[in-house]
Design a protein around this nucleic acid. Structure first.
Lengths: 123, 123
DNA sequence: TTAATTAGTTAGTTAAGACTAACTTAATAT
DNA sequence: ATATTAAGTTAGTCTTAACTAACTAATTAA
């Protein structure tokens, strides 16, 4: 089964929320992403089915090992791409928006190449 | 009306075909993009509706002024992004694939910034 | 001249991913 | 105790964009 762009976005957001909040609920995601509750509810069940998250009886959402791996990789892409675009002279808002779209399109090979270059640029 | 990723891909492909062939037919696009004839037929009618292409009685497809503008910009992004990724050490096949996805995500602001940097790098 | 191929269209299907409306259930406040 | 609010689910709708099946129309070949 192919991994989907929207799933990466949800997993990334779960990780981000978990970094600033004790527990993550569907409603937090809905608010953060400006999506409706049903959209998030349905998406969470798909992520659960796919083995990327667990949801306990209190509705608390946690990333599984595989979910965390995707979330971390996606977030890393987001952060570094944003930084690179800002470095190139793009304003922060635009940089974040574009990075958020680009992060899903970049293959592992390209990502390694970009990271190598980013490391060089950062010095 | 928001411009769609798939439309940019179609317009770019029409431009590419027109650069190597006298006339462009729906069937050429279908073959080039590995899409079914009906998919292309429907897509072409939407592009016509939107004013991006004309289709004459022989089924020959031509870009309008606005369609050409989008096609050229998209193709430019494709070419330069591919070149940049190859420069960064990505193999050609991967570079082309990733560039084809990324080209739709990049805002005008970011594109200007990247081009400026690309110009610098090319020297 | 009839048969076969080619190009294009129409109708209907599927899938992802958003939406609203309306429901349940649980917690909170009066 | 009852009413309200909050969280989550279910059902059904919409759009985009692909698909197959089946059609028309025009060209080409036997």
């Amino acid at each position: 089964m192919k991994r989907l762009e929207s799933q990466e976005d949800y997993l990334e957001k779960i990780l981000q929320i978990s970094q600033i909040k004790e527990t993550v609920h569907a409603i937090d995601i809905a608010r953060e992403m400006s999506f409706s509750k049903p959209s998030v509810s349905v998406a969470m069940n798909k992520l659960k089915e796919a083995g990327y998250i667990n949801i306990n009886s209190k509705g608390e959402i946690s990333l599984t090992e595989s979910g965390l791996a995707i979330a971390e990789k996606t977030l890393e892409k987001h952060v570094i791409l944003t930084r690179m675009l800002i470095y190139l002279g793009v304003d922060e808002k635009t940089a974040k928006e574009d990075a958020c779209k680009m992060e899903h399109d970049i293959s592992d090979k390209t990502w390694e190449a970009i990271k190598k270059h980013a490391k060089f640029v950062e010095k």
